[in-house]
Design a protein around this nucleic acid. Structure first.
Length: 283
DNA sequence: GATTGCTCTTGAACCTTCCA
DNA sequence: TGGAAGGTTCAAGAGCAATC
């Protein structure tokens, strides 16, 4: 039985979608759907997801949502970085130069997310704090896990690996799988694993909306036997709170004194680069 | 032990079905 | 008949359980 939405209902949904995009842009279609879901505007169903997708497409075509406000992290072009001149390259290098603040820190930190929809929410924090952000899309591939393990081993100091994922059978198991792979590929590394979200404490403290655990998932029996209860999407955590969780998780590993020193060195080195760029232009 | 068929992640296109 | 809703497919990487 199809339940058709009235024009008024669709316009109400449009208003919610537009607001979500305004507050979170750039955001993926999945991200929009989960934010709309969290305010109760649609159901947690595939048809509801498609409905949001159709409305987002229509709103982009009408100009109510800018095309660049919806991110697509799964498709990209490969193009070498080029410059119009050596002077431009020198100026650009000076402008974007950032000293690795983790060079002088006792620990390393890496963050992994289960899905793209979360990436857009937290990447501002990880970028600012210069922490690698890995997107697993469900289970990590062997290639991706091996690459991360090589990076961890190269740091030659304790590395804290944090995960953001759904509290459901696959989310929990994908996290177990990532830990196993990194441990196997980096057997001599000092790795500390921790799950930043979703935790059972967060479900209670934040009163996160749950959904019935999918019966079709073959991991459900083990999930329930472990006493995990109902499932919760990581997207259900409000973006501001999720960003705070990530920031707190990272900043606990930053020595403020070493950070201040690093920033001073960065300013001096950037100034040197600008002076080099200026010399280029005089020649 | 190998194979099969299900599960998860993402975004989009195209076609069909159904209802007001 | 227009438009909303549903069905299917594609890409890529993986895990788990049942069956052969």
């Amino acid at each position: 039985m199809r339940v058709r939405s009235t024009q008024a209902q669709l316009r109400e949904l449009d208003d919610v979608i537009i607001q979500v995009v305004e507050d979170n842009a750039p955001i993926t279609l999945r991200g929009v759907y989960y934010r709309v879901l969290s305010v109760g505007a649609v159901a947690k169903t595939e048809p509801a997801y498609r409905k949001v997708g159709r409305e987002v497409k229509r709103l982009r075509e009408t100009g109510d949502i800018a095309y660049e406000d919806i991110a697509d992290g799964t498709r990209w072009t490969i193009q070498p970085q080029t410059y119009d001149s050596a002077q431009e390259a020198a100026r650009n290098t000076a402008a974007v130069y950032r000293r690795n603040l983790w060079l002088d820190q006792p620990d390393g930190v890496m963050i992994f997310t289960e899905k793209d929809a979360i990436t857009g929410v937290v990447k501002g924090v990880t970028r600012e704090l210069q922490v690698p952000l890995g997107i697993l899309r469900g289970y990590s591939s062997l290639t991706f896990a091996h690459s991360a393990a090589v990076s961890i081993t190269a740091q030659d100091k304790p590395v804290y690996v944090y995960h953001l994922g759904d509290h459901d059978p696959s989310g929990i198991d994908a996290w177990r799988d990532l830990r196993d792979k990194l441990t196997e590929f980096a057997p001599d590394a000092d790795i500390v694993f921790d799950r930043l979200a979703v935790t059972e404490e967060q479900i209670t403290e934040l009163e996160l909306p749950t959904r019935p655990t999918k019966r079709t998932d073959t991991r459900t029996a083990g999930f329930e036997a472990a006493g995990y209860g109902e499932s919760v999407e990581v997207d259900a955590i409000p973006p501001d709170i999720l960003r705070r969780i990530v920031r707190d998780g990272i900043e606990q590993h930053i020595d403020p004194r070493a950070l201040r020193l690093s920033k001073r060195v960065e300013r001096r080195e950037r100034q040197s680069l600008f002076e080099l760029a200026a010399e280029f232009e005089e020649e």
